[in-house]
Simulated assay, not measured.
Amino acid sequence: MINYLNPALKPFIILLAVTLLFSGCKKDELTVTELGNMAEAKLKEIQTLSADIPCSLQNEVAVQEISTGCSVTYYPVKAADQVQFNKLKKEYFDLLGKQADAMVKQGVMIDPCFESIWVSEQPIRLECKADKVELITSGNISIEEAKILATQSYEEIMAAVNAQTCTSGSEWVSTALIKDKIMKVEFIPYLRTQDYSALKKKVSLYNGLKARIIEAQGPIDFVRNELKVESIDCINGKPVIKLNK
């Protein structure tokens, strides 16, 4: 049998055949578990990047935030590592997004974040301990200092609340401040149509500190909160919360 194929064309024909063969093979999609493991591994890279920073570099360190749903975590990051941190953060969120998409394809319902009480851990300052930079937060600050800072934070919150003015009550909502027992709270109003991120951080700091103080005092006494917000009215130019049982 005579082969009329031009020898110069053989490599190209073989390459075309291989391409067509593999283009017809669909790669298996990653599972929810696999994507979750990859995201966890990426998070560990972020944690490693922010760990064991010598005190000699403390002035070059800034606190960076990673927020996922209702969870917020803060990391000390050297200026020289900022680009790498941003890269890892993006890759981490990309993996979380793909995992969420895979869960939806499986019929899993993903509920949006709902916080009945703002209490996420908040950064306070950077310190040098054992020759390493340590991030002091509302979750690891000493109880003695927590008590002082909680009182200061409460005064700042109430000063901001008392300075609020209104023309109607339709755009106002409420959030809770922990009192002397877990779930025993008081409510404050805030305007949902304005940026309230600074207020949320301050309230989260206060509530986190109060929760730790209550826990340190002994067995936690949970008290069911009987009061509920019925309405928020604008009275004499001030938002006023009406409660009911």
Rank of each mutant, 00 (worst) to 15 (best):
F93P: 00
T193A: 06
A100I: 05
K105L: 05
Y75V: 04
I66N: 06
L20H: 05
L88A: 07
V32Y: 04
G218S: 06
D81N: 15
A211G: 06
I232T: 06
R224I: 10
I235N: 02
I46N: 05
K129H: 06
D94G: 12
T48F: 09
I66E: 08
V240K: 07
K44I: 08
N244D: 09
K26R: 15
L126I: 01
S231Q: 13
I66G: 02
D233A: 12
G69T: 10
K245V: 04
A159V: 12
L191N: 11
G69I: 11
E155M: 12
E171V: 10
A163I: 03
W172V: 01
I214K: 12
A8S: 14
F187T: 05
G237W: 08
R125K: 15
E230N: 11
L199A: 02
Q217T: 10
V203F: 03
P7I: 08
L5Q: 12
G208K: 10
E215R: 08
D111Y: 13
A159G: 10
L49H: 04
I13K: 09
I182L: 13
K202Y: 04
W118D: 14
N140C: 09
N140I: 12
Q99D: 12
V133M: 07
Q99K: 15
I66D: 08
K210W: 03
I213M: 03
K245D: 13
I220K: 07
L95E: 02
I241Q: 02
Q82R: 08
K132Y: 06
N225Q: 15
P219S: 15
D233C: 01
T48C: 01
S231K: 15
A159N: 14
L209M: 08
I110P: 06
E29W: 07
D131V: 03
S67G: 00
K238R: 10
N225T: 08
L88Y: 15
I110W: 01
M38P: 00
E127R: 09
C166G: 03
F187I: 07
L16S: 12
S120F: 11
A41N: 07
I117S: 01
S231R: 11
I110F: 04
I232D: 03
C55R: 06
Q106M: 12
V229T: 05
K98A: 07
D131N: 15
V63K: 09
D111R: 05
A8D: 13
V203N: 07
E34T: 14
L95K: 04
K202V: 03
D233P: 00
K228Y: 13
E230I: 00
V63Y: 04
Y190P: 01
I46S: 04
E171F: 11
V119S: 14
K105V: 02
M158R: 05
I136N: 00
E186W: 00
E186F: 00
F222G: 00
E171R: 11
F187V: 01
T137R: 07
K98W: 13
V63T: 10
E144M: 03
I117L: 08
N162W: 03
